[in-house]
Simulated scan of single mutants.
Amino acid sequence: MLTSKQICVQSVHDDVLQAHDVSLRVIRFDLAHPTVGGNKWYKLQRNLALAREQGATRLLSFGGAYSNHLYALAAAGAAAGFETVGVVRGELVQPLNSTLAFAHAHGMQLIPVSRATYRRRSDADYIAGLHHQYGPFYLIPEGGANVAGVRGCEDMATVLATLIPDLADCEIALACGTGTTLAGLLSGLRLLYKHQTNESRPFVRGVAVLKGADFLRHDIRHWLTCVNSPAKDEDWCLETDYHGGGYARVNQDLSDFVVRFARMHNIALEPVYTGKLMQALYQRIGSGLYPPGSRILALHTGGLRPLQSNP
């Protein structure tokens, strides 16, 4: 587990927040690692440990052509001495984009498959065929969405408790793609507060970045059950109306917001995850959905590309 020394807290101040008497702090999990920053580090750390315990030398996972997960897995796998295989949805267009070029440069074998084949990524027969074709490997699901990924994200709660003295009185807000990070965070918070008689604990708000994400509520409850940590529904919620048209869809309003936020607060956002999260928070604050005196912790879960990785 990383210590909190690489991660900092940045307070945000502007006219919108002042007018509504809302405190907003950004937790810079994106600084957790130079190339494997954000929640990807936490999802991968226990997966890599399990792979090593099982004697695996090769890791295989799935993602799209701009997958943060494959990018992070290639870097983390190379650093830990693993071979990596990335099954990529769609054809590999040459020259490779910066994400896939980075993964390839870090030794990842890229396997393009059709969208129809990609939809079989959870099918046992298809996985068996991949084992037959590419040899033994430790499988990490798309986005790091497994029990090990959830357990790894529990550590994010510990980091927050170290950084934020008033954590119990705050709302924690984060972007959600698979719900793995939110489930891990909820489980970690439950572990932190299980021995406390005071019922006060932070509320967690997830902001779904894909359209039609109501199914994520079931997935989050499933992961919580898998780690024997069912959270009460009053401890969290999932917002599904701030997707901006769908996953990786970026409209002009969102692009303008990301640029304006970076200029005002010196915090770079990417538009797929944290940009949508922050825009959703400002829309909610501006609509008066937070009572005066509210304290919000927005998790910056990474996704930004280091400049040196963009060929």
Rank of each mutant, 00 (worst) to 15 (best):
E199I: 14
R217L: 09
C226Y: 00
A208N: 06
A213Y: 08
C237N: 12
A262E: 12
K276V: 06
R120T: 11
V36H: 02
G129M: 03
H13N: 12
A79S: 13
M156N: 07
P202Y: 07
L50W: 07
W223V: 12
F82S: 01
V250D: 04
N39Q: 10
N251K: 02
T180K: 10
I7R: 02
G184I: 03
R263P: 00
F102L: 09
A51S: 09
A148C: 14
P202M: 11
F62L: 10
A157V: 10
C176H: 00
F137P: 00
F29K: 02
K276S: 09
D14N: 14
H195Q: 15
A78M: 01
M156I: 13
N97P: 04
D14G: 05
L59H: 02
V16D: 12
R221E: 15
R119P: 05
A76H: 01
L269I: 04
L130T: 05
Q6D: 14
L224E: 03
S200C: 11
V87W: 08
A101P: 01
S187Q: 05
W41L: 15
M1A: 12
G38C: 07
T274N: 13
K194E: 15
H265M: 01
G37V: 03
G149H: 04
Q279Y: 14
A262H: 11
F62W: 09
L130S: 10
G144K: 10
L186M: 12
A51C: 08
H13W: 03
I27V: 15
W236I: 05
V113I: 13
N266G: 03
G212S: 04
G38W: 04
P271Y: 10
L70Q: 04
S61T: 13
N251P: 13
Y118D: 06
R120G: 02
G177S: 11
V272K: 07
Y138A: 14
A231F: 07
H243Y: 08
T274E: 05
L110N: 09
Y71L: 08
H69L: 05
D123E: 12
S23V: 07
M108D: 03
P271G: 11
T197H: 14
D219S: 13
R205E: 11
Q54V: 00
R46S: 02
L92I: 01
L73I: 11
E53R: 15
A51I: 08
L92E: 08
P141V: 07
L92C: 06
R217G: 06
G55T: 06
N310K: 10
A248L: 10
K232Q: 14
L185D: 05
P306D: 04
S200Q: 14
S309R: 00
A65F: 00
Q94W: 01
S187F: 01
K194I: 12
G188H: 11
V93T: 15
Q283V: 00
C237A: 12
F82H: 02
Y71H: 15
L224F: 03
G90I: 09
L191Y: 03
